[in-house]
Design a protein around this nucleic acid. Structure first.
Lengths: 244, 244
DNA sequence: CGAACACTTGATGGTCCTCAAGTCGAGTGG
DNA sequence: CCACTCGACTTGAGGACCATCAAGTGTTCG
């Protein structure tokens, strides 16, 4: 197993939403300092999940939604023939588990692909508090809506015709999400394997590898194993738009 | 243009959630008769949308969510090269527009593919009332969560390898949704064209047609233009599971 | 009855999957 | 420190599947 460089020693979590490092993401965004204090009362537990362990599995009873503080997750579904289909990758600041509200049980397996830490937020308490803090209710709605929109973007990506464009779209999406979290958008390490990317994009790992090489040959990106450097963002975007 | 047989003359809508023909769907499900009365106050307008007209377009400011009373809709996105990618099909009892909450604007075009009628429900009023009617708030959350799960199912479908399995999954999904609405699950008219199915499944209309013929040859279904009769549900499901 | 549209079916070629044989990099034990 | 191992990754050859192009049928409606 590839051991990623250990992330910086798990900084003692500040155990409060008020001075969280991810201000404009998560449930907290746009709340008044007052409401953020309320929010603090809702965050019951921080939980560490080490690489390869799962946060919850499909079918587990729904208990809470989770905000990622650090690390990466993948969500996947095991098909009846045993193969696993990856539904998405998730990074710090993103919220997972919203799919579990409807049926009262989670619908995906959620696995850390890097040592990770999450805040667990019991939804029942959120709904209770949302009674008083109207903004919190509204924020929750926006969050869920955003998840729907994100899934739809993935659908477009998967509908995309050629493999090269799918991978380009995948990289562009990752880059955008890194940027939104204040990280460099054009130079990063992929937290997932070629096989996982392939499962997500509906391609084989060989094709993913070939498309990385192709993008490299076309001087759109540099690739060294999992390290990616985007050389020509504009051309990448064009590729996405065009052949999508 | 194919003119579908006119649906039964638009029964005078009862203009009330209390005696709606779609009891267990929509926002109403699981609410007390008390709360249903509240809900009535929220439904501002019923609106007819005739075949080919759109309910809203991508980018329109978000004003309301819509519950379908009758007819079918498709949601699509126009890609930069002008082609349109279909995101989903929607039938009576389903709610559309939840994607618009996050950004304050709709993210898809929503077009009637059959003469249709919808209830328009301004979200701001729902949130207001949800204050008092806790069940309503919870119902809204479940609804949004269900939408996320539905989108995920579509993602799996699109990730499916072979064309035949994708079409089988599409038919099985339609069948299930018809059944959930009290309609026969194994004998129905498709409200959409081959081209629309193709756009949704990431296939060409020719391939869709060929796969219909193949399923027919294998005696899993009967096909006459848009009329579909499912002959062997079990085999269809097996096809979905297996080659997905 | 002719036009327009939806659909079907056939031939051909390109893309991507499969199978197979390597290379590379990190961790391990001698 | 080096050889070894194991997983991740790369690259090649061949073939299946689906897109494309093209022709023709069926149905609806003016």
């Amino acid at each position: 197993m590839h051991k990623r460089r250990a992330s910086e020693p798990p900084e003692q979590p500040t155990a409060s939403c008020a001075n969280c490092a991810l201000p404009e993401l998560c449930l907290r965004a746009g709340l008044s300092p007052e409401d953020v204090k309320h929010l603090d009362k809702l965050v019951y537990a921080r939980r560490s999940v080490s690489r390869g362990k799962d946060l919850y599995r499909s079918g587990d009873p729904f208990v809470a939604i989770y905000a990622i503080r650090s690390g990466f997750f993948k969500t996947d579904l095991v098909l009846k023939d045993g193969r696993s289909q990856i539904m998405g990758f998730h990074m710090p600041g993103e919220v997972m588990g919203l799919d579990g509200i409807g049926a009262g049980a989670y619908t995906c397996n959620t696995v850390a692909i890097d040592d990770a830490e999450v805040c667990s937020i019991p939804l029942s308490r959120v709904e209770e508090f949302a009674h008083d803090a109207k903004d919190l209710a509204h924020r929750l709605h926006r969050l869920m809506s955003a998840e729907i929109v994100r899934d739809q973007r993935v659908m477009v990506l998967l509908g995309g015709k050629v493999a090269e464009a799918r991978l380009a779209a995948f990289l562009a999406d990752l880059s955008r999400r890194f940027a939104a979290r204040g990280r460099v958008a054009s130079d990063f390490d992929l937290p997932m394997t070629r096989e996982e990317i392939g499962s997500f994009l509906g391609l084989t790992l060989e094709t993913v590898s070939r498309m990385f090489s192709k993008l490299h040959a076309e001087k759109l990106i540099e690739v060294h194993q999992r390290h990616i450097r985007i050389l020509d963002t504009a051309a990448l975007e064009r590729l996405v738009d065009q052949a999508l």
